[in-house]
Amino acid sequence: MVLTILLILLIIYWIITMIGGLDFDFDFDVEVDMDVDADIDIDSGIEGGSMDFEDISNAEVNQEDVVGKRRKPLKWWQVLLIYFNFVGLPFMFTFTFWIFIWWFITVLTTAITFTYDNFIGFVIMLLAFFPALFINKIVTNPFKGFFKNLNKDGDAPIDYLGRKGTLLSSISEDKMGNAEIKVDGNTMSVYVKSLTGEPLPYGSSILIIKRSSDHNYFLVQTYND
């Protein structure tokens, strides 16, 4: 019953996500910070900073961020997350597959053994936890290449370098602000900092020069048509 209820909730979640019927603004950021005890800090790889309801399903911690930037050895639970594809794929995508596989194994096994309404069936459910993880890894592996080449909306990633935009806030030195960029008729909001540190007032026309090393913002300079 527990797995069935959880699976139903996940199905409802994906239906709501697909139809886009809700639009909540969450400051939900994903970034790995190696200097804190928690080891994983949240920072947003999504331009604009705030995420709507749909973005949570795509929240992803990249393997290169976990492994490449670390100064300390990975903890056992981080190794498990990477190994079982909870890192490198959208978390809710992998989690949903895992719950479905766990549920399916439990339902099938308890139905065959007629243990779905007793203590043995509960034990079977607990034991199915581990084979479900391994099967889930096999099932989700082919999706790694697919998601790697997509952004959160399922389109080809947008190249912001060299694009012009308008500042939505004043920036100077290390002060970060927002800029509005138009891409193929769509308006995007991105985090920006001044390339040289010079003050740039609100409403200035800017040109995106490069992306920060942590991929969280862009460095810009003034641009005159």
Rank of each mutant, 00 (worst) to 15 (best):
L126P: 07
L167I: 04
M176P: 11
S170T: 10
T113E: 01
I206H: 06
M125Y: 00
S189I: 09
I138S: 10
T187Q: 14
L150I: 12
G197A: 12
K144R: 12
Y160T: 11
L195F: 08
T110W: 06
G203S: 08
P131E: 13
L161W: 05
G165I: 01
V107P: 07
N118S: 03
A128K: 02
L161V: 13
I138E: 08
M188N: 11
I120G: 00
I120Y: 03
F114N: 14
L195P: 02
L126E: 07
E173K: 01
P201A: 09
F130A: 15
E180L: 13
L168V: 01
T115H: 08
D159Q: 05
M188Q: 12
V107W: 14
I124D: 07
I181H: 03
N141W: 15
N136Y: 05
K164I: 15
L133W: 04
N151M: 05
N151S: 02
S172T: 13
P199G: 07
D153W: 13
T109K: 01
D174T: 07
N151Y: 03
K175V: 11
G197H: 10
F143G: 15
G177V: 06
T140K: 02
A132D: 12
S189L: 11
F129C: 05
T109R: 00
L161S: 06
T115P: 08
K152N: 07
N178I: 11
F134R: 00
S172V: 11
K137C: 09
I171N: 03
G177F: 06
G162P: 01
G121Q: 07
F146A: 01
I120S: 02
L161T: 14
P199R: 07
D155L: 10
A128N: 14
K152P: 01
K137T: 15
I138W: 14
T196N: 14
M176T: 14
F114V: 11
G177E: 02
F134H: 09
M125Q: 01
L200A: 02
D153G: 07
F147D: 06
M125L: 02
F147N: 04
F122L: 11
L108R: 03
N151K: 02
T110A: 07
L127V: 15
K193N: 02
